[in-house]
Amino acid sequence: MSDIVRSGLWLAFFGVILLSWWWMYAMSTGMGLDLLGRPNEMAQRMAAMDPRMDMYMPMAEFWPLLMMWAGMMAAMMLPTMVPTLQAYDDLIRSANGSRAGWLGVLLGYFIVWVLFAAAITGAQLALLFGGVIDMLGIFKSPWLSGALLIAVGAFQFTRAKEVCHGVCHSPMGYFLGHWRTGFAGGLRMGLGLGAFCVGCCWGFMVLGFVGGVMNLAWMGLATLFMVLEKLPQIGHRITKPLGVALIIFGLGVLAWPLAT
């Protein structure tokens, strides 16, 4: 029976990931956006026919925007949690863990990311009404886009990134040092792991303001980067190269207006 429960929980977990990606795709197409988060042909034609119509205008109210960001967190961050849940799974027999604790870890992790979603929702609305970003969530100034890329790239070399990434990259060590049993114990550990994960990956999230917060291609690429960073075999080897790539990209964005 325990193997059946285990398989069912993992299947449900991956089902939530697939559902989250489908939801983001449905939201994007429903707003008349393509996979790059830009107005598609039909939306452009309809807007040209009646300029007063905002056919592809993303949400500009807190609660709808929060739902979008929460869905985005589920789609992007749950795949990165596989090594963490697998590590807890390995400890169920040897350290008196439980399936309830496994669910607690998952819930605590997601709670932290939803809180981060609320914070970035507020930031997006402030930037929008301050005229810094457009309705697609993209910086209006290439200087800001380039500066953000460089800042996120530079963060890859900081001690804070190293510490947070160390916990995300090796969750077994965190579990052994903070082990608590039962659902409440799992929830507590999940909150802690989620906090370290936000500290590790926040930069990839805010880069949505460079490419568009509903850019599904960016979401997929950022998810790939974060998954690779957490793989035990190669995660510690790619953090700084990713930082170099982001800095070079940012410098290119800054140089582009000067070259044109």
Results as ranks from 00 to 15, higher is better:
Leu106Arg: 02
Ala87Glu: 09
Gly8Glu: 02
Tyr56Met: 11
Arg52Phe: 05
Met55Glu: 12
Val114Pro: 05
Val210Cys: 08
Lys161Gly: 01
Leu19Gln: 10
Ser94Thr: 09
Trp143Tyr: 11
Pro232Leu: 08
Gly30Val: 08
Ile234Phe: 03
Ile248Arg: 04
Met53Cys: 08
Ser141Phe: 03
Met219Trp: 02
Gly153Gln: 01
Ala74Trp: 13
Gly30His: 10
Thr223Ile: 05
Leu242Phe: 15
Ala126Ile: 09
Gly8Asn: 04
Gly250His: 12
Val105Phe: 01
Phe14Gly: 11
Leu91Val: 12
Phe157Trp: 03
Val253Thr: 15
Leu18Asp: 05
Glu162Cys: 09
Asp50Leu: 10
Asp54Gly: 07
Met73Asp: 11
Ala75Tyr: 01
Gln233Leu: 08
Ser28Ala: 07
Pro51Cys: 04
Leu176His: 02
Ile120Asn: 11
Tyr174Arg: 08
Gly235Tyr: 00
Val206Met: 14
Leu193Tyr: 15
Val105Tyr: 00
Gly130Leu: 06
Gly8Val: 07
Met42Glu: 14
Met49Thr: 10
Leu128Gln: 04
Thr181Gly: 06
Trp10Glu: 02
Leu107Cys: 13
Phe196Asn: 15
Gly199Cys: 04
Tyr88Ala: 08
Ile247Gln: 08
Thr239Asp: 02
Leu148Met: 10
Arg38Pro: 07
Phe209Gln: 07
Ser28Gly: 05
Val227Ile: 10
Val163Thr: 06
Ala12Cys: 04
Leu216Asn: 01
Leu85Thr: 15
Gly212Asn: 03
Thr121Glu: 03
Arg99Trp: 10
Ser145Cys: 05
Leu193Arg: 14
Ser28Asn: 03
Met172Leu: 15
Ser2Asp: 07
Ser2Met: 04
Leu128Val: 02
Met59Ile: 13
Leu36Arg: 15
Val105Gly: 00
Glu229Gly: 00
His236Asp: 01
Trp102Ser: 14
Thr84Ala: 15
Leu9Asp: 06
